[in-house]
Simulated scan of single mutants.
Amino acid sequence: MTLRKWFHLFWTTLLLGIIVSIGIGLILQYSDKDFSVMGLSAVGFNVLNMLLGGATISVLSQMGFFAYLIVRFIVAGIIKSKTIWNLLQLAIVIVVLFDLVYLRMTNFEGTGTVFSYIVLPVIILLISLGVAYWKVRLTNRNAFIPTLFFMCAVSVLEAVPALKLDNAASSLFMLAPLLVCNAWQILILHKILENKKS
């Protein structure tokens, strides 16, 4: 990867994070009167904070993406069997989605039904499956499990600050740009590295 390609990835991801954050933030602000960024309710000031929040979330997404690529490179040197590595990734995805339900339900007990805690992991799983399917269409079938792992496990790990709150608006404000940025990076990676579809 050249510096020019990395700049392209960085700035496009940053722009996507900002656009999605401002869009989601404005929708939340006009649909939920209690929603405000940093406790302030002035629209102009909130748009500036949404812009900064989106930029921060996109940079967090990029840090997670490069951390995943480094971990994947290291694990590929340790675990020689691609089947074992894929099974390990699937197991981690299942554990992360289960923990997302169980830990939130136990931490926020009494504030919702079991169904209300299952909705978020199901949405994340469906989005991840869609992105993984799209990645397979763009590249090859070997990309399905790594993409699913990145979109589920890494996205949930990156979103921990928002998931610690029992607030749907906070989760949406962080998860929407995070998932969009993660999807963008994983879907464009093969073009940046110029890997041809086999």
Rank of each mutant, 00 (worst) to 15 (best):
I94G: 03
V101H: 13
S81H: 15
T2K: 13
A168Y: 07
Y117Q: 05
S58E: 04
D32E: 11
T83E: 15
F108M: 10
M174P: 01
Q62I: 14
I186Q: 00
G77M: 10
G110T: 05
M38D: 09
T106C: 09
T147N: 05
L88M: 07
L178I: 13
S31Y: 13
V136Q: 14
T147I: 01
E158I: 15
Q89W: 08
I127N: 13
M174W: 03
M151D: 01
C152M: 12
A168K: 13
I19M: 05
L48M: 08
P177W: 02
T147Y: 04
K80F: 12
F98L: 10
T113V: 05
M1F: 13
Y117I: 04
F150N: 01
A169V: 09
L40D: 15
Q62D: 10
Q29M: 11
L52V: 09
Y133K: 11
M1Y: 15
N140H: 11
I124N: 01
E158Q: 14
K5G: 10
L16M: 08
T13F: 00
N107C: 09
R4A: 09
L15W: 05
V136A: 05
I118Y: 06
V75L: 12
E109Q: 12
F73M: 15
L157W: 07
A159F: 00
W6F: 15
K5P: 05
K80S: 14
I123Q: 03
V95G: 15
T113N: 15
K197H: 06
L87W: 12
L3D: 07
T113S: 11
T56Y: 09
A183T: 04
D32P: 06
W11C: 08
V95Q: 07
L179Q: 04
F108Q: 06
F35H: 08
N49F: 10
L179K: 03
I94P: 00
P121N: 06
S128K: 00
G17Y: 00
S21W: 00
I123P: 02
I24R: 00
V20A: 04
L125N: 04
L69P: 00
F73I: 12
L129I: 12
L40A: 14
I19C: 03
L179Y: 00
D99E: 09
K5Q: 09
T106A: 12
I124A: 04
L28A: 03
F150S: 01
S198C: 07
E109S: 11
V37M: 14
A91P: 02
A176C: 10
G53F: 03
S36V: 05
L100N: 10
N46R: 06
L51Y: 07
L129F: 13
F108I: 03
M1S: 06
G17N: 01
R137E: 08
K33Y: 14
A183G: 12
G44K: 15
S31T: 14
A42G: 07
E109Y: 12
S198Y: 10
M174L: 10
V114R: 10
I123S: 05
L48G: 06
L100W: 06
M151Q: 06
L87N: 13
A153P: 01
G110R: 03
P161W: 02
I145F: 04
V47K: 06
I24T: 14
D32L: 10
T13E: 03
L14E: 11
L189V: 09
T111I: 14
S116A: 13
A153F: 08
G23Y: 04
Y68T: 15
A76R: 15
I145N: 04
R72Q: 11
L3Q: 10
L187Y: 04
I123A: 12
V59K: 11
